[in-house]
């Protein structure tokens, strides 16, 4: 059977490639043939700066070093936040009194952007790593908690009935039904939280830091180096995309039983 181009598996990657190449071309022509060039470096400048920064230090580290600094901050605070969030969320699902007492805090804290806490965080935790951990923690904690809670209370009652008919006690039902049934919700919360953690670490580093991708951008601003700023922005985008892809990969591996994962 003859498949048209749009049905072939190459349609998507080729379309994406043409689109990106076209965008870069328009950018290049625009910068070189108009006064836009005064506001913005061309794509070749930015990409060569981006590639070059893998071997040439910006400040104390190469771009890879800065990325690792930012990622390690996220890794530490996000792990703690996810762990605590899962426990809190499931506990709220299990114990209605606990939920009644604490859920309002999470609902109020969730819509506050973590960067709004920066002044208070600096006052409380100083200018070091703790402030950054605190902000990333805020970015992840309430989302993971509320998702885990939603997962725990939205278990299909027929599944709980089935377990009860088979002889499971309340504790066994929580352990063998509620927790596994909540995992897809927990995972969704962790995916959103990882994105916001990544966005928050950049913001936190822009306020006060001497390394990290956020610092790269601020230092580019201070020395008036637009190539460095845009190279940093490209790195943020690529790493953010990489993290989201990694989470989807993990979901497919860990949730083979789920429709979405299958």
């Amino acid at each position: 059977m003859n498949k048209t181009f749009w049905e072939s598996k190459w349609a998507k990657p080729i379309s994406a490639f043409i689109s990106i190449f076209g965008f870069l071309l328009i950018w290049h022509i625009g910068v070189n043939s108009s006064s836009l060039g005064e506001l913005m470096p061309g794509p070749i400048d930015v990409l060569s700066r981006f590639v070059g920064s893998f071997s040439v230090n910006i400040g104390q580290y190469t771009i890879l070093g800065h990325a690792l600094w930012s990622l390690s901050r996220v890794a530490i605070a996000y792990s703690v936040a996810s762990f605590a969030g899962v426990i809190c969320g499931l506990a709220m699902g299990r114990y209605p009194k606990f939920e009644a007492a604490f859920r309002p805090y999470f609902e109020i804290i969730r819509p506050i952007p973590p960067i709004a806490w920066i002044p208070m965080a600096i006052l409380w935790f100083g200018l070091g790593e703790l402030t950054k951990y605190f902000l990333i923690f805020l970015a992840a904690f309430s989302n993971v908690t509320l998702n885990a809670y939603t997962g725990a209370i939205s278990v299909d009652p027929e599944l709980i009935g089935a377990a009860r008919m088979l002889g499971a006690s309340d504790n066994q039902i929580f352990r063998t039904i509620t927790i596994p049934a909540s995992v897809p919700h927990i995972f969704a919360g962790m995916q959103i939280s990882l994105s916001s953690s990544w966005a928050t670490v950049v913001a936190a580093e822009m306020v006060r830091s001497s390394e990290g991708i956020g610092w790269m951008i601020v230092s580019g601003m201070e020395i008036n180096n637009m190539q460095q700023i845009l190279a940093g922005i490209v790195a943020i985008g690529l790493i953010g995309y990489g993290l989201a892809t990694f989470m989807r990969f993990l979901e497919r591996k860990l949730l083979v039983w789920n429709e979405r994962g299958a």
Binding site: L159, M165, L166, G167, P180, W257
Partner: peptide, 27 residues
């Protein structure tokens, strides 16, 4: 409810995170 009565649900109510074996041996 208790294990002296078995129930087969209209909605199936199979545990999706357990394999066929895991479901059958659950009780």
């Amino acid at each position: 409810p208790g294990p002296a009565r078995g129930y087969v649900f209209q909605s199936l109510a199979i545990f999706p995170w357990l394999t066929v074996m895991g479901n059958v041996e659950y009780g």
